[in-house]
Design a protein around this nucleic acid. Structure first.
Lengths: 124, 124
DNA sequence: CAAATATATGAATATATGTTCATATATTAT
DNA sequence: ATAATATATGAACATATATTCATATATTTG
């Protein structure tokens, strides 16, 4: 199923589709429905200040859970819950080291998104 | 106030901060608290599939509200509400053209974030 | 000016989500 | 094996947010 509906108009405005060509092109080049949801999910991972802080910390160095909690002023539980979400989003990875679990960024992509966003925020 | 708390440990783990140097560096290079919230807000704008669809459409062409609603299979009201959020986030701009309001991307930054995200999603 | 069309918006509702609390699991030290 | 430490997780709660419905505002047309 395409994320973009048939161009046949059924709902709102009465005027002919003002940008018919664009709408058609849109329909053809449509990313798959699933990709759009994945994309939204990716950005959801960045869409919370606690997770932003965690990602920012991990972009500087790997950390164990309790050090993250200490450094960021969060409870161990809250950090752990957020780390789980970030891991599910494939943005971070972890390894065990004795009693601790060390978390780090999964790849450089995170840094790219992060710095691009920061650049945008700073330039407004 | 720094987003990163004093390194003096008060809460969780008993071991000395495993990555003391990193934590200190972290503390010094800390983006401002406000920047982190702005950053989270920026990504919040991308963190919903309806808005993703709208942004994706606008990255192809400008559109009026009802054409967006038709093309994306959303109600006029839902689209309008989301457009307001996107405009508040400075991601899109609008101009009046007769009875219609034409929306378009505010700048190229949106496309960058969008394509970077899509690239990431596709490469996993 | 009145009717039609396009868009915006407040209120209500349903759902999603972040944090806390209590507790479970896993590893290390004694 | 037992205690101590580090991390994970389920349940509950509070808050945020996406959509719908009804309606208001703005522009054009007759």
């Amino acid at each position: 199923m395409s994320p973009i509906k048939k161009v046949n108009k059924v709902t709102a405005c009465a005027h002919p589709l003002a940008h018919q060509k664009a709408a058609d092109t849109l329909k053809q080049n449509a990313p798959k429905e699933e990709e759009l949801y994945d994309l939204a999910d990716l950005f959801k991972a960045f869409a919370d200040s606690s997770r932003i802080k965690i990602l920012w910390a991990l972009s500087a160095s790997e950390f164990c859970v309790c050090d993250l909690a200490d450094a960021l002023g969060m409870t161990q539980s809250a950090v752990s819950h957020q780390l789980r979400l970030l891991k599910q989003s494939r943005l971070i990875k972890s390894r065990r080291e004795g009693q601790s679990i060390i978390y780090s960024l999964a790849d450089e992509h995170v840094k790219k998104v992060f710095s691009l966003g920061l650049e945008h925020v700073r330039e407004i």
